[in-house]
Design a binder for these strands. Structure first.
Length: 852
DNA sequence: GTAGGGTTAG
């Protein structure tokens, strides 16, 4: 009899069951279940009434209106109760099934049959409460009903459903009798728990050691395992068995299972044969699943046109596409980057009522982002009513990859606020967003989350962490993360190597490439691009040529990334002709190719050639971006072309609607500064929309020095030292400037400050590669065995510079991006000397001098 | 009365 307690919970009086076990009279006492019921009864009562409150499942009171469970009814239809249990389980209310069972005991039903035991056991599986399953296991043993194969098989299935592989395996081998259902439960259990080899082992053991022939269910499960393992060999064996065993060849489950196996094993041809085999079998042909399998199989194997054809054929055959068809075709559009077709599919999905499926929505989001229409993707995400972790992941990763890193981090934040847990893909995307924003504080926070969530051993996450720290210019932390990784793959190595390359650690980069190869990891095009960037840093022409040769031998000659790197590297190594040739020979140039050649030519003083090429770029329909204008303006600045500089700066804003960031402004300030228009340069810095950094001020400071504006120099120096108080380079520049004016007091003041702050100047260092040898020089160095020739050459160069109309400030030649110096050096017939000195860092760039 | 099956999203 049920009563409602003070807290609104339903309590039950204890039942006094009278039970007779028909098939096992020895264990006929139901008494053993009684203590269990006593101890669990009220627990279950509370448990289920809580569940009911949460999920609004029908109450026993409402069930009694069915006339089955009226508590004052002394006799109840036994078979109807069994059916009710089954109904509850089938309709997804296992709690109610258990309640009916308890009710039956209350009513004193004789349990002389256990027809409904299996279905009852299944109810435990749905609730997925292992402890309760183990308890009922004990009672099933005590009742002696586990000898019944139906009961045992049910329990076996429940253990697998609860993810308890060990209990399932133990039970299976203890079972005195096993039928095909028992075996199949094991084969699929292993498969669903991810132990695919275990699943296939069961399959083979069943046949070989126990002589049980697989039925279609066993074959389907085993095929799933083959697909997951991408094991074509095993898959073909099963296919052969299916053909020999006389299994139904018109079975559409088997056919789609086979086709899927072949597709997953990348054997598109055999998948095609399977599909052709059904074209004349109408019943099979009308099943959309096989079409879905084929279309998605083609897409994931890169057979895009076949996928398109099949989809068209499907529509023409009048087969109604399903949500999975939409997903497959949308993934196809993402692969083809075809926005127009993607939009059509979107419309199609709407008109067929398939657009509100989570997977379809997610595929739509991904398609819009991949096809460059981020806004549409975000709109779907924002209006979706069924966002799950995958959809969030799609939105966050796509934002991070589509140049919307701030949006990615905002979404990440929202997601964490709502859900707390983020999976490794979401964390990965957030880390990548931090990398592109060089947002170390946020990156550190996510690193903490990585450790807490146990994603530390994930190679992808590891690589992203290395990359994040490297991009945030914290190469020490990048190294630390890298060397703590248990698994290091090519990607992680590349992250470290490019980190070294980008942070001015060329030696470390080269060593890392060496170490990577001693771990038997072969460099790819990304690694090679890093080596090239190191060559550019070091102006290491020989190494550059060696790498180039290696790349040609490995067939990377037509790789975009490589060609672009070569353009930049040859230019930086002084060989602008090779740079130009590689650019010209590229069959398909992308934005980076154009930008690289502009930068290279500009660096070499070929401004006019850059201007002509830019027109060519515009004519070719390629759209200039921020980097293009930075390169153009840098060319202008190198050649002192103020007028053109202003022209491009205006066109950037007015024609291309690009808002200039710091770099173009730096070029403009440099240009104005060189032209002596110091006031305009200063005003431009003050008026620009972004915050000035030390470099732009540094450029103006250098201009102040060369044009002798001491008063402005002091103002500028204040700005710099506020931004970067420990930067010694600018302080030295300032002290040199005072020196020019004979302001010895000021000189002393600055020098004392430097001393008091404990700042040390690392000596300016230059080097040059001659016949595979690197010759290094520091300031005042006279140790080189050609020192006399070198100083002779320097004097001659200084003369030439004067002749060309440039006035060296002092007998010292400043190392820097001076194309004039560079041009003269390369054209001078001093064969032994090819001066391509590069300062190691910006400190030295500001003050390094070749040989005092 | 039991068990078991196919495609699909980041």
């Amino acid at each position: 009899m049920a009563t409602v307690g003070s807290h609104g919970r339903v309590h039950y009086d204890l039942p006094i069951p009278s039970v007779r076990i028909r098939s096992n009279p020895k264990n006929a006492s139901f008494g053993s279940l009684k203590p269990w019921l006593i101890s669990h009864h009220s627990k279950f009562g509370n448990f289920y009434s809580e569940l009911r409150l949460q999920r609004k499942i029908p109450s026993p009171e409402s069930m009694s209106t069915l006339g089955v469970l009226s508590s004052n009814q002394s006799t109840m239809d036994f078979s109807m109760s069994g059916d009710l249990i089954k109904d509850h389980v089938d309709s997804g209310f296992p709690e109610d099934a258990l309640k009916v069972f308890v009710k039956m005991l209350e009513c004193g039903f004789p349990l002389d049959e256990f027809r409904f035991f299996p279905v009852l056991i299944k109810a435990f599986g749905v609730i997925s409460d292992v402890e309760k399953v183990r308890e009922i296991h004990v009672h099933l043993v005590k009742l002696g009903v586990l000898d019944d194969i139906y009961v045992a098989n049910s329990l076996l299935g429940v253990y697998w459903k609860c993810g308890e592989a060990r209990d399932a395996i133990q039970l299976f081998w203890k079972m005195p009798k096993k039928d095909s259902v028992s075996w199949n439960t094991m084969i699929s259990g292993f498969c669903r728990s991810g132990d695919y080899m275990g699943s296939l082992r069961m399959f083979s053991q069943m046949i070989r050691e126990h002589g049980v022939l697989p039925n279609r269910v066993a074959c389907l499960s085993a095929l799933s395992s083959c697909s997951a393992l991408k094991s074509l060999l095993h898959g073909k064996e099963i296919h052969a068995f299916v053909l020999k065993s006389g299994l139904d060849l018109d079975d559409d489950f088997l056919i789609s299972g086979l086709a899927d196996m072949y597709m997953k094993c990348r054997d598109v041809k055999n998948a095609g044969y399977i599909f052709e085999g059904i074209l004349d079998k109408e019943a099979v042909r009308e099943n959309a699943v096989i079409w879905n399998v084929m279309i998605l199989g083609y897409v994931s194997n890169g057979y895009f046109s076949q996928a398109v054809e099949l989809f068209v054929e499907m529509l023409e055959s009048g087969i109604l596409p399903e949500s999975s068809t939409m997903v497959a075709v949308l993934v196809l559009c993402s692969g083809l980057l075809d926005l127009a077709v993607g939009k059509q599919i979107h419309g199609f999905a709407i008109s067929h009522g398939l657009d509100k499926d989570v997977r379809v929505e997610t595929a739509l989001i991904d398609m819009y982002f991949k096809c460059g229409y981020a806004k549409a993707g975000l709109d779907i995400f924002k209006t979706s009513l069924n966002r799950n972790i995958v959809m969030w992941g799609a939105a966050i990763s796509n934002c991070a990859q589509s140049g919307l890193p701030s949006e990615a981090l905002d979404l990440f934040h929202n997601y964490r606020m709502k859900n707390g847990f983020a999976d490794s893909l979401i964390v990965l995307a957030a880390l990548r967003a931090c990398s592109s924003l060089t947002l170390k504080s946020k990156g550190l926070e996510i690193h903490g989350l990585v450790v807490k969530s146990g994603f530390g051993s994930d190679v992808f996450i590891g690589g992203a962490l290395v990359d994040m720290y490297a991009k945030c210019r914290d190469i020490e932390s990048a190294e630390k993360v890298f060397y703590r990784l248990l698994d290091r793959d090519l990607i992680t190595w590349n992250a470290l190597i490019s980190g070294y390359a980008q942070n001015g650690c060329p030696d470390e980069a080269l060593k890392a490439i060496h170490d990577m190869q001693s771990e038997r990891i072969t460099p790819n095009s990304v690694t090679s691009a890093c080596v090239l960037s190191v060559c550019a840093h070091l102006s290491a022409m020989t190494l550059c040529k060696e790498v180039h040769g290696y790349l040609l031998r490995r067939g990377f000659g037509s790789n975009d990334l490589i060609s672009n790197s070569l353009i930049a590297t040859y230019a930086k190594c002084g060989d602008i002709n090779s740079s130009r040739t590689i650019f010209r020979k590229m069959p398909e140039k992308n934005e980076v190719s154009w930008n690289s050649v502009f930068l290279g030519l500009g660096m070499h003083g070929h401004a006019d050639e850059v201007f002509v090429l830019f027109e060519e770029m515009e004519e070719s329909g390629m759209k200039p971006d921020h980097a293009t204008f930075t390169a153009l303006l840098s060319a202008c600045s190198h050649a002192g072309r103020l007028e053109e500089g202003f022209k491009y700066f205006r066109s950037m804003v007015e024609c291309y609607k690009l808002e200039p960031q710091l770099e173009p402004y730096t070029c403009m300030v440099d240009l104005l500064g060189r032209a002596g228009q110091l006031k305009q340069a200063y005003d431009m810095i003050l008026a620009m929309p972004c915050a000035p950094d030390d470099r732009i001020w540094g450029s103006l400071l250098a201009a102040c020095k060369s044009h002798g504006d001491r008063r402005l120099a002091e103002v500028v120096a204040d700005h710099i030292l506020e931004l970067d108080p420990t930067n010694i380079g600018y302080r030295i520049l300032l002290s040199n400037l005072y020196e020019d004016y004979g302001k010895w007091e000021e000189v002393n003041r600055v020098r004392t400050e430097i001393k008091d702050m404990g700042l040390k100047k690392s000596p300016g260092c230059s080097w040059i590669e001659v016949d595979n040898d690197i010759h290094t020089f520091v300031a005042g160095d006279r140790s080189h065995h050609h020192t006399v020739d070198i100083y002779d050459a320097l004097e001659r160069l200084t003369l030439q510079i004067r002749k060309a109309g440039y006035v060296p400030q002092s007998p010292l030649v400043t190392v820097g991006p001076s194309d004039v110096l560079h041009k003269d050096l390369t054209s001078t017939k001093t064969n032994s000397l090819l001066f391509l000195a590069t300062a190691r860092d910006k400190d030295q760039a500001a003050s390094a001098k070749i040989m005092t």
